Every structure is written in C-alpha cells, then in structure tokens.
Amino acid sequence: MGSVQRAMRLLETVAGHAHGATAKQLAREAGIALPTTYHLLRTLVHEGYLCREKGLFFLGDAVARLTSSGARQKRRSTVADTLACWRDSIGVPVYYAMYREGEIEVMCVSDSREAPAVEEWADFRETGHAHAIGQCLLSQLDEEARRDHLARCPVQPLTRYTVRDNDALLRRLARLRRMEAVVERQEYALGTVCAAVPITVGTTAATMAISLPAQRADRLLPAVERLQTEIGRNLGSLALSISM
C-alpha cells in the first residue's frame, strides 16, 4: 500500500509539470527518497503511466486511457441515473438502446419490482423486427441499411401479432414520420406492449423505450408522451452520453 501511495504522489507531481520534471525535482516535491523515486519512475515508465524524454518525466498514454475510461463510466452513470428518474416518475421500465456497427444494442435498462422489464426470451439483436426498440432503430436507417440488417436478421414470427415478412416490415417503417414514436403490441412477447422514441445525434441512431403489461395498455400512449417530454428537457445531456 505504501508503494502505491508513493506512486500516486509521483503521478500527481508529474501532472503539475506541463513541461516535464527531473527525478530529483519529483523526489523533492513528492517527499520521497531519491532511490525509491528512481525505482517507482522506472516502473511507471515501463507500465506506460509515465514517459521519459531527455531526462524529464511526463504523463504517459496509460493515464489518458484511464481518464477516457473514467469519462465513459461517468456518462454511463448519467444515463442510468436519468433512466431511473424517469422509471420512478412515469412508473414504467425504461430502456436505452443504440444501433451500432450493424447491431441492435440495449445499453441500459432501468426497472423495479413494481415495474419489471420485459424478459429477453428471444435475442433482442436478432428480433428487431418484433419489438419497438428494434423497429424504432431501423426506422432511423436508410433503405439500404434496413435491407442489409434484415438480410442478416430476417423477420421470423414470434407471436401471432408479429409482422409476417421483410417487405411488410419495410412498408411499415416507410410509413413512419420522422422522429415519430413506435408502438408495438404483443409482437415480441404476448402480454406486453411497448413504445420507443427515436433519438438521433449526428449519424447515431438511438432510442428510449418503455413497456407495460397488455392489461395496462391504456397507459402506454400517455406514458410515452411523458417520456417524450422528459427527453426534450434532457436532450442536451443525453447527446453527450449517446456514444457511451
């Protein structure tokens, strides 16, 4: 533990010198014996946390990676906190998903015992035609990208309400107005209705979605309207986290 603390003090000391510092200078400022400082500096350089140029020490690439990772984690936490707030205020489970590298990815789900999420009984990535999340993401793609996705993940019946073939799905998607919420009723899972709101930031297709038991379907449209209102209020912070 003592070595770790001394290494951290050295990193903090180096960070205070934009133009680099010598080993003797770092030892003096960090209050660490010079032989110990040399040993720790060699280790930190070897691991990439520091680099040495002309006898001066600077922060290395590994520190930048730690900073980037920390920023990503903060963005994830921001999205998770936002979804939890909406879950509690609207009283429904809330989902955040993206279309990335040709795949449907559910990035975050916020549910509770009172508002449980839909059980993923069939792979969400392969059944985008059947659930509101997938339909919403596909609706934001161009025709070529949609057909490419369906060539890899063709329509298959999951329930008696599921759209029947690729062409029928493409026609449905083409009828959707830009940024219109997508509603799906028991197409993915019997007894469940869902709605998804599109979010497009730059070239990234994303969505926030909700689900409800079919016996409470009358609450779906009011709930999705509230979700749209919340998204409008928080779109700025969501945009910063869209690529988490």
Rank of each mutant, 00 (worst) to 15 (best):
E103Y: 04
E119C: 09
Y99N: 02
R160D: 14
H149A: 05
Y99D: 00
Y96H: 03
D167G: 01
V92E: 00
E105Y: 14
V182E: 06
M98D: 04
L190H: 12
P157E: 09
Q156D: 03
L169V: 13
Y161T: 05
A145G: 10
G134E: 06
R172Y: 12
G102I: 03
E103H: 09
D167A: 05
R146K: 13
E101S: 15
I133E: 04
T127E: 00
R100Y: 07
P157Q: 08
V94I: 13
A122I: 09
R178I: 14
E144Y: 11
L150H: 04
G128T: 05
L138F: 08
C136E: 06
A132V: 04
V106Y: 02
R164S: 14
H129D: 10
C153Q: 06
E103D: 15
I104L: 09
R160P: 09
E180R: 03
S110P: 12
V182P: 03
L169E: 13
Q186H: 06
G102Y: 02
R147S: 13
R171N: 11
A122Q: 10
A117K: 08
G102R: 02
H129V: 05
A174L: 08
I90K: 00
L173G: 13
T82I: 12
V94N: 02
P93F: 02
G128K: 01
G91K: 03
R178V: 15
N166V: 03
S139I: 01
A117S: 15
A174F: 11
G102P: 08
V106G: 01
V193W: 01
S89L: 07
L173F: 13
L141E: 10
W86R: 00
A168N: 10
P157I: 01
A117H: 07
R125V: 13
R125S: 14
L83F: 02
W86G: 03
V193I: 09
D123I: 06
T82S: 12
P116E: 14
N166M: 03
P116W: 10
L158Y: 00
V193E: 00
N166W: 06
D142H: 14
Y95F: 09
A130S: 07
E143A: 13
I90S: 07
